[in-house]
Design a protein around this nucleic acid. Sequence first.
DNA 1: ATCGTTAAAAAGACTAAGTACTATTAAATG
DNA 2: CATTTAATAGTACTTAGTCTTTTTAACGAT
Lengths: 130, 130
Amino acid sequence: MILQRQTKQKQIVLQALTELNHPTATAVFNRVHSEHPTVSRATVFRVLKQADQNGSILRLSFARGEDRFDYNPTPHYHVRCNICGCVSDVKMPYLTDLEQAVEDACGYRVYSHDVEFKGVCPDCQAGEKA
Amino acid sequence: MILQRQTKQKQIVLQALTELNHPTATAVFNRVHSEHPTVSRATVFRVLKQADQNGSILRLSFARGEDRFDYNPTPHYHVRCNICGCVSDVKMPYLTDLEQAVEDACGYRVYSHDVEFKGVCPDCQAGEKA
DNA sequence: ATCGTTAAAAAGACTAAGTACTATTAAATG
DNA sequence: CATTTAATAGTACTTAGTCTTTTTAACGAT
């Protein structure tokens, strides 16, 4: 593993990530930029990318839209609201046995999987009634 | 439902889709363009988008990479090879009961879900040994 | 069949997420 | 403190995808 230096910018970016709810890279940049205008956009993208490759955060790729990030690197599932676009964690056990089933079904060696649920969040459900 | 006209370009694009394995929009364009140079790139994207919205094909959004398309609109799962990038269908029952579990767990009303498995395809497994 | 309406197409400009590049800065380590 | 080199700032670049304008053609109505 290559040396990775601990820098102020990294701390700032990863701290901002913990303060936001499954943000996009741009959302992280906006947050960072408001308090630390000298931190560049490229740095935000680079730090998030490196942290994902480290396994210290998660990068979520949803249909129709830019990637989002989760400071919790433990594999878990997500739901996204079709209306407001917000994303929430799903508190449900991770179905590791699915991967074995896929290996048997199609001959791939399977290392991971992701599930994206789509629906309407509680807030938007309330809004629909009004 | 708005009127949708049947055009030659649509036929050409959707025919090309059936001849390719989970292609990207650009791959569909390349195929179409080789035989029908007058069909524009924008048309390929528009036709694929409309067909997805119709529900007559599937748009697959994978982590790290452009969207892919599947002429089979029936919900089903996919595996992607981390090495060559190819995508295959997974012949496994669609887990509709998962959606109910998510509704109970997080209060969303859930309408659909997608699963993306990641691993190494049989061809690349063979290549690794050599 | 052909006419009129208008959805859809062609061609190319545009947008924006993400990456690459280059000169410069600043962590880590002895 | 000096050296090494990862990381940063700033900007250019790439490209999947969309939008715009003008033109073409699908299809219901006459």
